[in-house]
Design a protein around this nucleic acid. Structure first.
Lengths: 218, 218
DNA sequence: TGTTTAATTTACCAATTCGCATAATACTAA
DNA sequence: TTAGTATTATGCGAATTGGTAAATTAAACA
């Protein structure tokens, strides 16, 4: 139990892996994203990853554990995307619009039909009966609310919005906007329409329209 | 093909039904509500309704048709609940709060753990791959937006909100509030907290807090 | 070269799933 | 009674599902 796995150093002993774990996890995520946890069989995932079931099992554990790892991967990606935008320290309206736009990037990513938010589209369904999934959902809800709250609080301190505005309330509406985008994207609403919707939400929350800014960092 | 089913008049011919179709449909709805379309087997539904699979099949068609009927039942209930509230013709703030409260009634109905919105929790998952489900989702999204838009437009005409406020934008935020409530309820957030959240949303949308009114008609 | 290690491949298992065919049942009509 | 009809009950069957055991393969090591 002292060192059953050496780091990435040197060559590993036995037969080399035929897959890259992170790539495989992303492919499994894609499979779950399309048809949900219950609607995706291990055969589907085996096909999506090019692995067979025993390898899948050895790498990630059973179906449930694999799903949780995929969900975790999704959270990490989302958090990173959010941080990238917050780091740019733009005014509130532009920051919100970038966040919504970036969310739409994710919701409209992938080859097939738009899939919306992975968590909203798949984890929420399982949340009723699955305490673990439910716990990660609430954690992420709180994180999103908290991020928006801090963002809006700072903007108010800079005088960007009315001094009597309530940051917590506006934060809730920002989160709600993300949620409605997530749901609508998975329901087949076109991206352009959702972009207009997001713009309207920003305008109400901030009291002015957002200016156009470069999506990528710079 | 002329009259293979007489109305409710007189006695029906063969062995009488052991179930009430609407009750059974509601029980099937409950089963799907908890575990989603893919996560609910026909055996689960047979247990929930007390019917056996052949009867289920004869009454509602296959699993997919049954699900669509359950979803439709849910829409009808929602529409009726909404109309009941709109018929009271209260001011905007109180109307919105009643709608959100009524939504929470639905999201926290049932015996087990809170299930949120049936459509959000189960139909959205299937929507990516299922055009029929997706179509009813978009229809209902548009209906909700439209209802809120008309409501807010009328309120503005009565002078309840600022004359320069944009009804369409506020309607989107109202819909978004419903969506965030639906998601959060299914993610395990307590009802009291969601009530406070709804209150904040109403306050931002209307510019004032809603007054307490009787939930039921009167 | 042979041994050890770690992965893959094949094949299997028990359980579940959806759907249906058939038989039994309960009622009306004549 | 008897026939006709609409339902329920039983049980089958082909396919799928999640999971695993056993055999095979590919590399490092000595």
């Amino acid at each position: 139990m002292v060192q059953n796995k050496r780091p990435t150093d040197g060559k590993r002993r036995g037969r080399p892996r035929a897959y890259d774990p992170e790539t495989a996890l992303r492919q499994a995520l894609d499979a779950f994203w399309k048809t949900g946890f219950s609607g995706t069989s291990l055969d589907d995932i085996a096909q999506a990853t090019g692995m067979n079931r025993p390898s899948l099992y050895a790498a990630f554990g059973d179906k449930h554990a694999l799903y949780l790892k995929a969900l975790d991967q999704y959270w990490r990606d989302s958090i990173e995307a959010m941080r990238d935008i917050l780091d740019r320290k733009l005014p509130l309206a532009e920051t919100l619009m970038l966040i919504f736009d970036r969310a739409l990037d994710i919701y409209f990513s992938g080859d097939g039909a738009p899939r919306g938010c992975f968590a909203v589209g798949t984890a929420v369904t399982e949340a009723v009966e699955d305490a673990e999934i439910r716990a990660t959902l609430t954690a992420s809800l709180n994180r999103l609310d908290g991020n928006f709250d801090a963002l809006i609080r700072a903007a108010r301190a800079r005088g960007e919005i009315a001094p009597d505005a309530d940051p917590a309330s506006l934060a809730i509406l920002a989160t709600a906007t993300v949620h409605t985008l997530a749901l609508r994207a998975r329901s087949g609403v076109a991206r352009a329409e959702l972009q207009r919707l997001a713009r309207r939400a920003v305008t109400v929350i901030c009291g002015r329209e957002p200016l156009d800014v470069q999506p990528s960092s710079g």
